[in-house]
Write a protein that binds this DNA or RNA. Structure first.
Lengths: 140, 140
DNA sequence: CTTGAATCTGTAGTAACTAAAGATTGTATG
DNA sequence: CATACAATCTTTAGTTACTACAGATTCAAG
């Protein structure tokens, strides 16, 4: 009673997901994708389920989850006892990380913007930008 | 007519800059810091100028410049023909990168925030967060 | 002079891939 | 069926910016 499944080559999966072949193999090595069926010659053949799993990984990566967190997320999705609570926790924590990163970048942006405007045209022989970076004290 | 200079050990430089010893040596290997003077026994001795240079690197890194860009910046600072213009260009480009990264993070934040609020309490047996990530179409 | 802290070099590990070499397999066509 | 060529295979090394050892010296204080 096994379901009839159309299996895909790694190239086909790559095309359908936009994920490079090497990366797919890398995810397998990294334990995120289960080792797929093989042809007699050893070529990988993927099921639709495997493709879905890869999509999950790709989506999570797009959202900035580390591979390690993706691994955890997948483990939760795999295990029966998925309470949703842990997933919730991980996502919240990640959201906090994303916000913290934004704050860092905002600070960078501000300083850079000030530096650039202080040196608006780039025609001076001495460079205020460089001087600023060389200053020993804290940034203006 | 050489200037009298108080030389510092690598540990002293580390303490004054907050940069780890290994990182200082790494910057030397990476060609960002010039090989310093050595004692007879081979220990590094740094001048104030070297410390300033390290400060420059650290400051630029804090602002998110890649080591490669820092290298370029230092080369410009070193060379006589520093018009400031190139420095200006690099900084502007970097500022654009910083802004682009912020935009990416904003998108992530939005999606994550929506996901979390859709799954507010984490008490459900099935997890909307997980389901969402498994969806094959584009994210909501 | 002796100890203990500091430093030395060199290698390997981290994250998340990417690339390339060289061998093998799969498949389309004559 | 033969053959050519594309696709895939494994393994290894490169990337970025460090960090962390191990084992050998060297420095500085008492």
């Amino acid at each position: 009673m096994a379901k009839i499944q159309a299996l895909m080559s790694i190239g086909a999966v790559s095309k359908r997901t936009g994920c490079k072949i090497e990366t797919i193999r890398y995810y397998e090595r990294a334990g995120l994708l289960k080792p797929p069926a093989r042809s007699q010659g050893g070529h990988r053949h993927y099921s639709e389920a495997a493709l879905k799993r890869l999509t999950f990984i790709l989506r999570a990566r797009q959202l900035g989850f580390s591979l390690d967190r993706v691994r955890t997320l997948l483990a939760l999705a795999d295990g029966e006892g998925r309470t949703c609570d842990e997933v919730h926790q991980i996502t919240i924590r990640h959201l906090q990380d994303v916000r913290a990163k934004q704050d860092d970048l905002k600070v960078m942006e501000k300083v850079l913007d000030e530096m650039v405007s202080r040196c608006a045209d780039g025609t001076l022989p001495e460079c205020p930008l460089i001087e600023e970076l060389f200053e020993v004290g804290p940034p203006a």
